[in-house]
């Protein structure tokens, strides 16, 4: 059966990709490992939902089997939610099929039976358009397409898992931070901070203007001063606040990617040549330890 085969470990993205398939007049077929997701997606507009049964709890381990299904069914596209598990599965399936794959598409549309995809390169500095024909794979980030409605048929499918990798333990990550992608205002800190306690300077400003505190990847992943969901950028959160104020953030392209849709960008940095000033609406060249407390004071009034 031709059509677009879909997988995501996040049901929301699955619904959105179903929306994408319908938008382009294609039959959406959903694959899932989770009975629960299957039920939740019953009315999300798919043609068919296939619940995979097998020996492993890791979807990645079905890559080889899924590749075979896609081939046998004459699928035209495998569209996967761009999450860590999804990207792994998608690339492994592409590897078994030795076919084209476009990761983390910015846009995708059909023209003359070819799928035209755009994606970012070099941390967001460059946009590349690629044409795909024949069975191909894409990964799709959240929030790209509108979900639709419609009832799907349900089916189970026994698949052979590759059990060489097995799960020993799973510890849920408790989200400590807020969902930055929904924040109205964001105060962002970078590696200029000397110590974790100095985060207070950012918090004080954030409290006065009612903002959330975000950071660069290095602050979260190297120094672990803020939780991973607090970092903004191409590999972290993409934010679209009315106001974004950075302090001691150099503004490397990978970070700036995450703030492109901000209403107003304000930067405070000692280095007047820092790339952040090229991305900013307003800037002050100065020491954050001086400037930020003054700004906090000025905005109190």
């Amino acid at each position: 059966m031709a059509g677009i085969f879909i997988y995501s470990d996040k049901a929301d993205i699955t619904s959105e990709i179903i929306g994408f398939a319908r938008l382009n007049g294609k039959l959406p077929v959903v694959l899932t490992l989770s009975e629960k997701d299957a039920q939740a997606l019953r009315n999300a507009g798919a043609d068919k939902i296939i619940v995979i049964k097998g020996q492993s709890e890791m979807i990645e381990n079905y890559a080889r089997a899924i590749a075979a299904v896609l081939k046998n069914e004459g699928a035209e596209l495998f569209a996967v939610g761009a999450t860590p598990r999804g990207r792994d599965l998608a690339a492994r399936v592409a590897g078994y099929l030795d076919c084209a794959m476009v990761s983390d598409i910015s846009s995708a549309s059909y023209k003359d039976e070819q799928l035209i995809c755009t994606r970012m390169l070099y941390g967001g500095a460059v946009q590349q358009t690629e044409k795909l024909s024949g069975l191909s794979v894409i990964t799709v980030p959240a929030g790209k397409y509108e979900p639709v409605q419609g009832e799907a048929s349900l089916q189970t499918l026994e698949l052979q898992a590759d059990t060489r990798v097995s799960v020993v333990e799973t510890a849920p990550i408790v989200k400590e931070g807020v969902d930055l992608s929904k924040a109205e205002k964001v105060v962002c800190v970078g590696m200029a901070l000397d110590k974790a306690e100095d985060l207070q300077i950012a918090r004080d400003l954030a409290n006065v203007i009612g903002a959330e505190v975000g950071c660069t990847r290095s602050i979260a992943e190297e120094r672990h001063w803020l939780p991973a969901e607090s970092y903004i950028g191409i590999s972290g959160a993409v934010v679209k606040p009315k106001l974004y104020i950075s302090m001691g953030v150099s503004g490397q392209i990978q970070h700036v990617y995450g703030i492109r849709d901000a209403g107003l960008i304000v930067a405070i940095d000692t280095n007047e040549k820092a790339p952040i000033f090229k991305a900013a609406d307003y800037g002050i060249v100065g020491d954050l330890y001086q400037v930020v407390p003054m700004l906090t004071e000025a905005l109190k009034k």
Partner: peptide, 30 residues
């Protein structure tokens, strides 16, 4: 390659790029 690249183009951000540099820091912050 399995996919065909049809276009490569740069992304530019158009922002106001206003740096407050008149007067001392206090005036800039103001």
């Amino acid at each position: 390659p399995r996919s065909t690249v049809s276009e490569v183009k740069g992304y530019v951000m158009n922002r106001k790029n206003i740096i407050f540099n008149e007067g001392d820091l206090a005036e800039q912050v103001k």
